[in-house]
């Protein structure tokens, strides 16, 4: 458990960016894309509010005088499912999904949202990848061995009743480690976080970095993805001495300068900054990408803003530098 960031209000961390002009332009565009309901759609051309872009956008706009954060937070509170989880988008079925961890982190500062956050955290603790069940553990150990992994090490699925994957596990770890204490029915938090960390370390690709879920399938090593690797590294910030983490940071540092697309580049900046590696050149590459303001994908637009304001972004994820 990490307790070092819980007292910091990420909406109050001042903006420090290498390029304030670009950032303010992008934040203005992000603000324009906010829907009347308070949420954001995944694509600029869409009007279906979704949780992932709403969380990134609310966090990106948090310290700017633009946008309406209160409306975004109200939207999040009103879309929570009765079971404590969040749907992927407004109108979705109500069993809950992987975005619950993002919603919990986005409501971190809001006092009236404490009951909703607690319900969300309870749901996260109860949501287990299928390999956490004894029967599937046994099956993966005996009959189904084409994918190399240790089923004793489990995390979170994208969607209930499926196995653990890297991104939902990393986001869940980030959300749960911001909890001030593991009491009031949340006693299992340290256990779940530890299993999740073990799962991430177990599923890394052989040369470092992470693919979507596993490192080896049918005997073939899978290639790491920059964004999956970066998100996993954020969750493993306090495990910097682990050889897997060091190899993965090295991989990300190698691949970072070759990235020419904003989503992966933005995640790489955040993860490398979290692991105290130089990011100035990567930030320059990011602001030099063409047509940033007209990116159709609002998730990416918001993430670029977070990468340009990386210190505040890291505090959002509970990472202190």
């Amino acid at each position: 458990m990490r307790f070092d960031s819980k007292e910091i209000s990420h909406y109050k961390v001042p903006t420090v960016t290498t390029d304030p002009v670009v950032l303010s332009t992008l934040l203005a565009e992000l603000s324009l894309r906010q829907l009347p309901c308070g949420g954001w759609a995944a694509l600029a051309s869409s009007s279906q509010p979704a949780i992932e872009p709403t969380c990134y956008s609310a966090l990106a706009l948090g310290s700017a005088p633009l946008g309406d954060i209160e409306r975004a937070q109200d939207f999040l509170l009103h879309t929570q499912n009765p079971n404590g989880s969040w749907p992927v988008f407004s109108g979705d079925d109500q069993e809950g999904g992987w975005v619950t961890s993002l919603a919990v982190m986005s409501l971190f500062d809001l006092v009236p949202a404490i009951p909703a956050r607690l319900k969300g955290l309870h749901w996260l603790v109860s949501c287990v990848g299928r390999e956490g069940n004894w029967f599937w553990k046994w099956k993966f150990r005996t009959a189904d061995r084409h994918v190399r992994f240790d089923p004793d090490k489990f995390g979170w699925p994208w969607f209930p009743d499926t196995v653990s994957w890297v991104v939902p596990t990393a986001f869940s770890i980030l959300a749960l480690t911001q909890l001030p204490c593991s009491c009031g029915g949340l006693e299992k938090v340290p256990f779940r976080v530890e299993r999740g960390v073990e799962m991430l370390l177990d599923r890394a690709c052989p040369g470092g970095g992470w693919n979507a879920g596993n490192g080896t399938v049918y005997g073939a090593a899978l290639a790491p993805h920059a964004d999956d690797t970066a998100i996993a590294l954020l969750a493993l910030c306090d495990r910097a001495k682990e050889p897997v983490v060091q190899a993965s940071v090295d991989y990300l540092e190698r691949v970072g300068p070759t990235l020419t697309v904003p989503w992966s580049l933005a995640w790489a900046i955040l993860a490398l900054a979290a692991h105290r590696r130089p990011i100035t050149l990567l930030q320059r590459s990011l602001v030099a990408l063409p047509d940033l303001v007209s990116i159709d994908d609002t998730n990416t637009l918001a993430l670029v803003c977070l990468a340009l304001d990386f210190q505040r972004a890291l505090s959002v994820f509970g990472v202190t530098l």
Binding site: E52, G97, W158, F159, D161, T162, V167, A212
Partner: peptide
Amino acid sequence: ARYGWPKNILH
């Protein structure tokens, strides 16, 4: 965005 990467529910 709804079912995950890969679309594990289908598996």
